[in-house]
Design a protein around this nucleic acid. Sequence first.
DNA 1: TATAAGCTTAGAGTTGGCTCTAAGGTCAAT
DNA 2: ATTGACCTTAGAGCCAACTCTAAGCTTATA
Lengths: 147, 147
Amino acid sequence: MLKISELAAQTGLSAHTIRFYEKHGLISASERSEAGYRYYSDADIRRAEFVKTARNIGFSLDDIGQLLSIRLDKDSHSCQEVTDITQHKLDEVNGKIAELKIMQQTLQRLLDSCGGGPEDATHCSIIEALEEGDVASTVSARNGGHS
Amino acid sequence: MLKISELAAQTGLSAHTIRFYEKHGLISASERSEAGYRYYSDADIRRAEFVKTARNIGFSLDDIGQLLSIRLDKDSHSCQEVTDITQHKLDEVNGKIAELKIMQQTLQRLLDSCGGGPEDATHCSIIEALEEGDVASTVSARNGGHS
DNA sequence: TATAAGCTTAGAGTTGGCTCTAAGGTCAAT
DNA sequence: ATTGACCTTAGAGCCAACTCTAAGCTTATA
């Protein structure tokens, strides 16, 4: 049985974050001392590490919630539910990469067009491009936003 | 002279967003009617379009503030200041792309390992990988976070 | 026994960029 | 003169995932 700070040390999550995850149903302490101190069992620890791993990969807390409930009752969930969550996340990641690549290209093009020397910005081609608005490929962004 | 809704129509920004940008010093109306209505001159419109263009590329509002002050007084700013801002943004974008590519690879590897069929999740290799924690390449993320 | 480290809670604050609301004033058209 | 569309403001709310604070209790060590 670990205390919260010990679980924090093991998982690399902060005690604050562990409590935060508990509030969101991701992690819980299967026991409490009389004084209310959280005590984490081996199963709790494994769950916390699952959460940490999933978080590292980039799953949202919401995704992780779903993955955890599948993990808790594997028999009544299909493999496909898991791949759906994963595929959905992959799509999201691919979408973001695509957006960022457009930004990358635009920024690189701007930099290529401009020496960046110590001369004043009167004829700076970057400023000019921004003024002309001719920076081409605007981010298509189905979600409208820049992360 | 355009009213705010007209500027909104021209730029594709909402009137709310234009006021928000004004509050943050990016856009302003060089005139106001007696009743306080904003009226935008040609110069104001060009400035608003500059902001919109820079925003589309992915510059933060803070970056745009800097770019605008360079634009306002080109003589006393060097070209290099502009490339510095641009390069910094490019570095940031490249960093995010690198993070996302790691996620992408991990997610793809997970998907490849799992058929995703209708069978139950008892032996789901994705869940197993998350339980083992052996998902390899954790995002290095200098900033610690996923966008 | 006293002190410090560690635990508890509810709830507020952070980030960035909006987005919206409420309550009211203005203006153009009928 | 009245309707309805538009404008004004300050300020609240939203998103995700933390991060921190305050005030108070507990536990381990000296």
